[in-house]
Every structure is written in structure tokens, then in C-alpha cells.
Design a protein around this nucleic acid. Structure first.
Length: 576
RNA sequence: GCGCCGUUGGUCCAGUGGUAGGACAGUGGCUUCCCAAGCCACUAGCCCGGGUUCAAUUCCCGGACGGCGCACCA
């Protein structure tokens, strides 16, 4: 049995995750997190929030999952998602119809053509299947859009879409968020939430699903001034698999400290380097096996056109490397896009250290002359005069000045233009911040953590499966058992369980079956510690550690303190 | 979306043209002072629709879901 088969079976049986809507036949690409999985997911999210929001001093928001169409026109998702497929009648292969057209004709941007036209083009140019050469004329071209569409409001309402990534909810609200950040860069905004993609073919358990959870940080920086605190992660060792190494069949993933990688130019951007360092420590903290982890740099062809440098965090699961997170320097692409498409202001005013005095050429056209003289063209002429003044002051030297508006030339007497050159004080300028985006898949992190925690060993000749989850993220922290159901032990154990719950620990109580069976049950769901009450007259109990199965005896009075220290990481089991 | 294979208690499997059996898990009881022990009892299942048939979980067709391959993964 493969590791995945074991893990999926355990996940289903023990309430980590399973396919949703099973009672109705199930639906592809949707999963329910059971009681254990929901708690594990929440703990992973809390660990992320602690590191990427709280420790970094960032701002967390919670934006809607539905947004109106213009948002995704601006973001590019509407076009980017609308791909066209044509299937070969001979060999059955599906190909991108727009790519076939672009590759075989002079037409560019075939993607922007409507489907009937694309079908006509295929017939007109007698295009053939790239795989087998059969003619594609007459074959239906089908569109698929990976965004879930919905309609907002009743009747002939406006179209909306479920967000395909949480990031847009941050970018769209930038004009408000910058006010909250008091117009000071850098500032970071985080969001943990669901995103939706109507995948053609959901596969591989939790890895390709139609509804998933992302944890994203959008850090807004001044590209000219802001720098990360590289010293904080300079000594972190990270396994790097650069584009260069990927191109060389003899090269393999290599351990670098973040400091070396920046100094040697392996990581191109310092902000990206900083977050690779932070992410390395975070993945280790939540239980990803660092022996099965790497950062892979995007190859030049993979890079989005606006991205300077991009790395993915990847983990090895059952022989495959799966993508866990992406770290991209996105320049001002996202904010500029929204600035173009919306009427709002996506810039920040950046004050100069010292105000500058500059000469500026301005015009103040006499509209009472321009209006009667040029009619409807007057406003356009005034605008053209101003832009001409900024470009070329000498144009105003003569008795008249000529401008062109909408292809029409106009001659305006200089006396009506009121041209002047003034000294003005500039105290700053408007800049569009650049964006650094670490984007994490929460479900994939959970899937990887469970996989990497999955362990097998032998205890006293008996085979054992257990999840070696980190205490910080384990869904259940401690199991409390009476050794037997006699001598009032169950009552005493219940009291202890309640006491531990009062202390904020996640506790399960179990008195069924033999003690060994109860230990194994907790091992399998990954509970790191079990407390067993026995007949000891001294008022002690045993704490048993999951991975080693070792036990130690602790005074009941010290139990809460001891377990709390184990939970927070202030102590390890070996200390007792 | 295409092709191949599959779908039987909670889980993992066996089996059959006359509606099913095991293992593990679970529940109750006996036993039990530390690692899946034993004994007794119990709970619980043939993915959905259509067709063939006296009769379909079984055969045929379609669908849903899953695995793998192809395509796709902005």
C-alpha cells in the first residue's frame, strides 16, 4: 500500500478529511475536514497567523469570497481563465484552440476572439491537429472558465465570481487599507480564507480541489527605499533548487543559508529571500519534514511577465514534489491594474526629505475665447496646450501656438493662452507601491504535515501506525484515561480532564477497552501525550509520550503546568 | 474533457443471476493496575438510473464518484 493510500484511509476513518456530500454520491473536488482535520487546520492557520501577521506586525483582513465582474477584468482572471479547447476527431487529444491558431497564422492574441470566430478560423486556415495531423475543421471549440460564476441580486442581476485567490480582496481594498496604514510604507496585509477554482479535473485527494484555503500576505513596499530585515534570517539554512540547477542535469538541490544565497545572487530579490527564510522556519515549526522540502525557483518561461523573481516552496509526498506556497515579487502590477480599471487612487503620496523647488510651465487658457472660437473642441485644446507646455516651452515663443486634437490642427493666438513659467514647491510625489506576495496553500500544508507525520514502528512486537504531529498543531493535545474502570478511577480521570480543559488544552477522555488499545487510538490520531490515572495513593499520574511510548510520573498538582509547558514548547518530554 | 481500471458494513477485502461472508474498528457485558490480550452478545453494507430476466449486488447501457495516463493547472 502506498503512503497516500494509508494516509487517505486513516484520514477518512479518524476524521481528518474525506470527500464531501458522500451521501449523495460525492462531488469531485470538495472535501470536508472532520473533527480532527478541522482542528489541525485551525492550528496550522493559527501558527501562520502568529508568524506572518502578529510577529511581522501586519494587518489581517477578511474580504468577501464573491466580487463583481470588473474586479476580475482588472485582475486579468476573466481573460486568463477563459481558455478554448478543441479536440482532435482522430486521436482524441485536446489542444488549446487559441494556441493552434497563433502558432500557424499571423494572428496574435487569438484568445480574445469569440468562440464561433475561432471555429471559423480553424476551418478557414485548414488547421490540423498538432499531434496526428488530422484536420480540425468543423470540430467544436469549447470554452472552460475556471472561475465559479454567480449572480449578485435577483432578476437580471450583475454577474459575480467566487474569488480564485484571496489576494484580490486585498488589492481591491488598497485605497482604504492605505488610509488605515496612515499612508506609510511598508505595510503588509494578510488574509486567510477560501478561494475557488472550477477545476476541469480535480485529482490527488486534497491537492487539486475546487474549494480551498489560502493564507496570503501582500506586503506593500517602496521599491526605492524599503528593505527587509535580512539579518533576522541570514543564518537560516534552506534547500534551494534554482532555475540554473534545474537546467543542469547534474545539479541538485543545495543547502544555502539565506545570507549566502543573497550574496551569491542565487535569490534575486531580498524581500523574496527574507520570506523564504521565514517560511523555512515556519514549515519546520508546523511539522513539515525538512528532508523532504525545498524551494524551487520558477524557470524563465514560468514567470509571469511582471514578476522579477518567483520561488515555490515544495514538499515531497509519495515521490512527487507538490507545490505548497509561492513567493513572488509582483512589482506594481496588481495595484496599477486596479488603478487603470477603477476610479480610485492606488498610489501613496511620498514626501521628499526636503521640498524641492522646481520651475513649472503652465497655461491658463482664456476659455471665454476658446469656447466661442472652437466650440466642442475647446476643452481638448486646453488640455493639449497644458501638455505641450510641459513638453516644449519654446512652442509658446511666437505670436501663436499650434496644437493637434483628434487629428485636427488648431492655431491659437499666444495672448489667449496665458503661458507662464512659475517656481513651485514640490513636497513629494505619488508612487504606486510594489507588492511582495508570499502565498500559502493551507490544505496542502495540512496534507503534507499529515503525510510527513505518518509513521510506523513496532512496540513490543506489535505493529503500530502513528501520526507524529507537532504538539503545537496536533488536533488533540492530551488523552486522559483511568487505568481501569474500578476504584473510582473514571471519576478522578474525568476531573483531571476537566481541569486540563479549563487550562485551555484540547483534551479527550477515554475509558473503553484496554489501556493499550486507548494508547494506540491516540497514537493514530496523533495525540502527543496521554495522562493515565492509576491507584497510586501519592496523588500522581503518568504522562506517556506518543513517539517514544515512554512514561514519566508527575504530581497531579503539577499536571497542568507540565502539560502547558509541553504544549507551548517551553519544555520537552525529555526534561521530565 | 478523452482512454483504461474500479465502486460490497465505519475501514480493508471475499463472493454470488435466487439480496451476502470475513478481518479490523465500534457498542454492551465479564476480566484487567500500563501498551491493539481473551470470552459472550450486539450494531452495520451490495453507488445511482435504465435495460435484459420469473428474479440483478452479480449481465448490458448510461451517469456519479475514485485511481492511473493524456490534456489542463492563469
Amino acid at each position: 500500500m502506498t503512503e497516500t493510500a494509508d494516509v487517505v484511509e486513516l484520514a477518512k476513518r479518524r476524521g481528518y478529511f474525506f470527500q464531501a456530500s458522500g451521501a449523495y454520491g460525492g462531488v469531485s473536488g470538495f472535501y470536508t475536514f472532520g473533527p480532527q482535520g478541522a482542528a489541525l487546520k485551525r492550528n496550522i492557520e493559527d501558527a501562520w497567523r502568529d508568524r506572518f501577521t502578529i510577529q511581522e506586525g501586519n494587518l489581517e483582513v477578511d474580504a468577501p469570497t464573491v466580487a463583481p465582474e470588473p474586479v476580475f477584468e482588472a485582475s486579468g482572471h476573466l481573460d486568463g481563465f477563459d481558455d478554448m479547447l478543441v479536440e482532435c476527431p482522430e486521436c482524441g487529444e485536446s489542444h488549446r484552440a487559441d494556441h493552434i491558431i497563433e502558432d500557424n497564422t499571423d494572428i496574435e492574441e487569438a484568445e480574445s476572439y469569440p468562440i464561433p470566430e475561432v471555429e471559423e478560423l480553424i476551418a478557414e486556415f485548414e488547421l490540423v491537429c498538432p499531434s496526428c495531423g488530422a484536420g480540425l475543421a468543423g470540430q467544436a471549440v469549447t470554452a472552460f472558465n475556471l472561475m465559479f460564476e454567480t449572480s449578485i441580486g435577483p432578476g437580471s442581476s450583475q454577474p459575480g465570481y467566487l474569488r480564485p485567490e484571496t489576494a484580490q480582496g486585498i488589492f481591491v481594498e488598497f485605497p482604504q487599507l492605505k488610509e488605515y496604514a496612515r499612508n506609510q510604507l511598508p505595510f503588509g496585509v494578510t488574509q486567510i480564507g477560501r478561494a475557488y477554482r472550477n477545476e476541469i479535473s480535480p485529482r490527488k485527494s486534497l491537492l487539486r480541489v475546487r474549494e480551498f484555503t489560502q493564507a496570503e500576505l501582500e506586503l506593500f513596499v517602496d521599491p526605492e527605499e524599503d528593505e527587509p530585515d535580512l539579518d533576522a534570517v541570514r543564518d537560516v539554512t534552506a534547500p534551494l533548487y534554482s532555475a540554473e540547477m534545474q537546467a543542469d542535469p547534474d545539479a541538485a538541490t543545495t543547502e544555502w543559508t539565506i545570507g549566502e544565497a543573497v550574496d551569491e545572487g542565487v535569490i534575486g530579490d531580498e524581500w523574496v529571500a527574507y520570506y523564504l527564510g521565514v517560511a523555512t522556519e515556519w514549515y519546520d515549526r508546523v511539522g513539515v519534514d525538512m528532508e523532504r522540502f525545498r524551494f524551487r525557483q520558477h524557470l524563465p518561461g514560468e514567470l509571469a511577465h511582471y514578476a522579477a523573481d518567483c520561488w515555490d516552496a515544495e514538499a515531497e509526498v509519495d515521490g512527487d514534489w507538490i507545490e505548497l506556497a509561492g513567493f513572488a515579487y509582483r512589482s506594481d502590477y496588481d495595484l496599477s491594474k486596479h488603478a487603470e480599471h477603477s476610479d480610485d487612487d492606488f498610489t501613496l503620496f511620498k514626501q521628499y526629505d526636503e521640498a524641492k523647488t522646481v520651475e513649472r510651465a503652465t497655461v491658463d487658457p482664456d476659455m471665454s475665447y476658446l469656447g466661442p472660437e472652437f466650440g466642442g473642441a475647446a476643452a481638448g485644446i486646453a488640455e493639449a496646450l497644458q501638455s505641450l507646455a510641459e513638453r516644449d516651452r519654446t512652442a509658446f515663443d511666437g505670436d501663436s501656438v499650434s496644437v493637434e486634437v483628434d487629428g485636427e490642427a488648431y492655431e491659437i493666438p499666444t495672448e489667449h493662452v496665458n503661458f507662464s513659467v512659475d517656481e513651485v514647491t514640490e513636497s513629494g510625489e505619488h508612487i504606486t507601491p510594489h507588492v511582495v506576495e508570499p502565498s500559502f496553500g493551507v490544505d496542502r500544508a495540512l496534507y503534507t504535515v499529515v503525510h510527513h507525520a505518518f509513521s510506523e514502528d513496532e512496540v513490543e512486537g506489535e505493529h503500530r501506525n502513528y501520526l507524529s504531529l507537532e504538539p503545537e498543531v496536533a488536533p488533540t493535545f492530551v488523552g486522559v484515561f483511568p487505568l481501569t474502570d474500578q476504584d473510582g478511577l473514571p471519576e478522578r480521570a474525568r476531573e483531571v480532564a476537566q481541569e486540563l480543559r479549563d487550562a485551555g488544552l484540547s483534551v479527550t477522555y477515554d475509558d473503553s477497552g484496554s489501556i493499550g488499545r486507548r494508547y494506540r487510538r491516540q497514537d493514530e490520531v496523533g495525540t502527543p501525550f496521554c495522562v493515565t490515572l492509576d491507584g497510586d495513593p501519592q496523588g500522581t499520574a503518568t504522562i506517556r509520550e506518543r513517539d517514544s511510548t515512554a512514561q514519566t510520573r508527575v504530581d497531579l498538582d503539577d499536571l497542568v503546568e507540565t502539560l502547558t509547558a509541553l504544549r507551548t514548547g517551553d519544555a520537552t518530554f525529555d526534561d521530565y
